[in-house]
Design a protein around this nucleic acid. Structure first.
Lengths: 198, 198
DNA sequence: AGCACATACCGAGGAACCCTCAGGTTAGAG
DNA sequence: CTCTAACCTGAGGGTTCCTCGGTATGTGCT
């Protein structure tokens, strides 16, 4: 199912092109936030004051629009992981990063599904970013394991499965009743090696 | 968002009605399995050898078709919980039931999302079954907690959040690489009170 | 300034799917 | 056999997807 080259939307050359590209992206962010990743592309185009063909010119697939709309946030997440990599408390670093990741994964409904897809399917617009994130998270995990703070048999893939599962729970939950922080904490306590109490 | 009476599809009175109802249900099961809960209703009708209007007569909403298609499996799950309720090993009972629940929740793509919705939204076809399941699971949890085998501060709602999160992970995973059993086990180990080793 | 053309825009239109409803058909009770 | 409630049909209006041929325009070059 690897479809040729993944289209990573890039800023167009001409001034009017850039204007429209930005307008579409802004409209898309708003629409995704409101209606989830399945928001109508035609109404996004309308909202941006652009014909539908123009939207497709810049973003040939829905996934490439989602990718462009979430690229920055994902990049921040990767940067944050790098910053935390040398933390003196690797367990705190890991848990803090995971919280942040869960929050980003559930920016809007449907995102976490797209990211989970992209994680292992090259030929997907978001694959590059997901891969970078995978590395960042894996480093934090390894550090915590090296310090003997997290059970050694937990793999990065498992970490990401949990991460996206928790994000999905958060995405589903009603605004008031978000149980995901508790779930994540339960999991973290579960994987922590505790040889402190006698 | 509670929409009047949830339509629980019931077997029609006339013989031709029952025939078509069953044919539609069979076609729907196949289609959901293949294409997920968003499978085309028109092609389900066609597959069943029935006009689209007939499908809508029996199942006014997609959710009621999904409900009918999964009712038996869910009922089995509830019955299984009742059977396990008096198990001599409540922790084993709980973990066995959870495995089974995860497996059923991910019968086809999209199901777990519908069930998660139905869990707390009365006015949804599947709500009754979900509610029954909630009780069954809660009983198993309480039993394990009463025996001091599972941390006491875990609530049934949290249990179900985890359950559906894990099911979602399973639903996403490629056929070969299903990490959900491991995730579930990790969680179970995490919530188990261990005061056995010195 | 004027030209040329790559770049960008437009929106009609075919296809898929949703769901409704007015009118025709039929099973089955009496 | 009659009658009617139950059932079936499929055309059709609405939405969204995505493509593509035609048209417009920004921009570099002279």
């Amino acid at each position: 199912m690897t479809t040729g080259t993944p289209h990573i939307a890039q800023r167009p050359r001409r001034a009017d092109g850039r204007r429209n590209y930005d307008a579409i992206l802004a409209a898309a962010r708003k629409a995704f936030e409101a209606d989830g990743s399945e928001a109508s592309l035609e109404s996004i185009a309308a909202q941006a004051g652009v014909a539908i063909g123009t939207l497709y010119r810049h973003f040939p697939a829905r996934a490439s629009l989602v990718e462009a709309a979430t690229r920055d946030g994902l990049a921040d997440l990767v940067a944050h992981a790098e910053r935390l990599a040398s933390s003196p408390d690797p367990l705190l670093a890991l848990s803090e990063w995971m919280e942040r990741a869960v929050r980003h994964f559930s920016t809007f409904r449907g995102l976490v599904g797209i990211l989970a897809q992209s994680m292992y399917d090259e030929g997907t617009p978001s694959h590059a970013m997901c891969s970078a994130m995978h590395h960042g998270g894996a480093d934090l995990l390894r550090a915590a394991q090296a310090a003997g703070l997290v059970r050694a048999d937990l793999t990065p893939d498992e970490l990401f499965a949990v991460l996206s599962g928790v994000a999905w729970v958060r995405e589903q939950s009603l605004p008031g009743r978000d149980g995901s922080p508790r779930i994540l904490r339960l999991f973290l306590e579960g994987i922590t090696t505790r040889d402190r109490e006698p």
